[in-house]
Design a protein around this nucleic acid. Structure first.
Lengths: 104, 104
DNA sequence: CTATTTCGTTAGTTGACACTTACGTAAGTC
DNA sequence: GACTTACGTAAGTGTCAACTAACGAAATAG
């Protein structure tokens, strides 16, 4: 999870991930979407790959990438843990409200 | 969301958030849990607060903090979007498997 | 009012990281 | 073999952020 959240903390890497979400793209085509140089994007891709957030498929000299949602599993659990607590708070607040309603 | 994910990218800030998850704690007591200096923790707390991830309550000279799950809403949506896609892929794979089963 | 406690804030330093330029590599094409 | 295409990698640079030490502020105790 450490690597995944570090990878997502960079806005451009989130953009890359969104770009290859649900469809494969060549490294060069990905880089073409950004204003920074191609090596910069290549380095971002390596970070995402190392974090388990990208899947690579090689064909000839090209490398195709697509998002790999499984890499988000741990981070998702971390977030969801807090979110469930929020729902629990909301439920408790609603019940409190109901008690006050019926007490009138 | 930008501020939230930046805040969570730092391991110590995640530790702080976990520490005040479901219970209030004084700033000093939070700092006592870590090996770095108190000002360092204080700065982390400010980052978390600015990101909307912490709630502050002042009483006398003390400041009590607790996790504020609502601050995770946007980030949660971002993660969940990819996760839903994963479930969709799994479902498609299962149906494919079923088709091959019944075709035998 | 002075002293103490509990904090936040500022200044300065160090390390990490995103970037560019230059180079290396692997798979075709002629 | 030499050339091209589509990449990754290495070296060097500037920026930002996490930290410590020193200081400031606000509430309370005596």
């Amino acid at each position: 999870m450490e690597e995944a959240i570090q990878a997502l903390a960079e806005p451009r890497r989130r953009d890359i991930l969104t770009l290859v979400f649900g469809r494969e793209m060549k490294a060069g085509d990905i880089a073409a979407h950004f204003s920074v140089t191609r090596p910069a994007i290549s380095q971002h891709i390596q970070v995402l790959k190392r974090a388990g957030l990208l899947h690579e498929r090689r064909q000839g000299t090209c490398r195709y990438y697509r998002a790999r949602p499984e890499g988000l599993e741990d981070l998702r659990r971390f977030i969801e843990q807090f979110w469930d607590y929020r729902l629990q708070l909301l439920k408790a607040a609603a019940e409190e409200e109901e008690r006050r309603e019926s007490a009138r």
